[in-house]
Amino acid sequence: MKTYGTEPGAPTPVQVGISELAVSDGDETLRSYGLGSCLAIALYDPDSEIGGLAHAMLPDGDAAENSDRKPGKYADTAIRALLRRMVEKGASYTSVEAKIAGGSDMFEFDSFGDGVGQRNVVAARDELEKLGVPLVAEDVGGDRGRTVEFTPGSGTLLVKISESDGTTGVTEL
């Protein structure tokens, strides 16, 4: 069972688990924990300060039967679902920007081919380009896991990497 530590006084971030997505406005923080080959996709509209985070597991939802039921599971359907929900909340499609993080490849197994993380990254880039959403920042690939925190109000995506020497590296996108 997952448990989450919280700093005293700080609002509890909304957890976005694997295959889930969440849309929010303002200062609420959305968080996805321990991404390996999964991909975090953050979309936001800087004008309305509405944004969302998806924790996608697989690249291609259009080829899958259950993508209607679980749009957040696939990079392509997650991006479309995030956009739709943001626009419903009042975001303007044309000003939406994207940031992505994750898609590591920690294991070099034969069955993994070119890398399972890499496939997710490519799928997200393709879908964003198709929809005309600019990808303004990314921190992808490599062989380390990542934890991300996204604040739609500011559009800040914090990426934390737990290094092998025990330190935590933080990148702000």
Binding site: I18, Y33, G36, F109, R144, G145, T147, S164
Partner: peptide
């Protein structure tokens, strides 16, 4: 040597 979740997710992704 990483966050446990990150070590498992490549397998489930595949």
């Amino acid at each position: 040597h990483d966050i446990g979740t990150a070590a498992v997710d490549p397998v489930i992704v595949q």
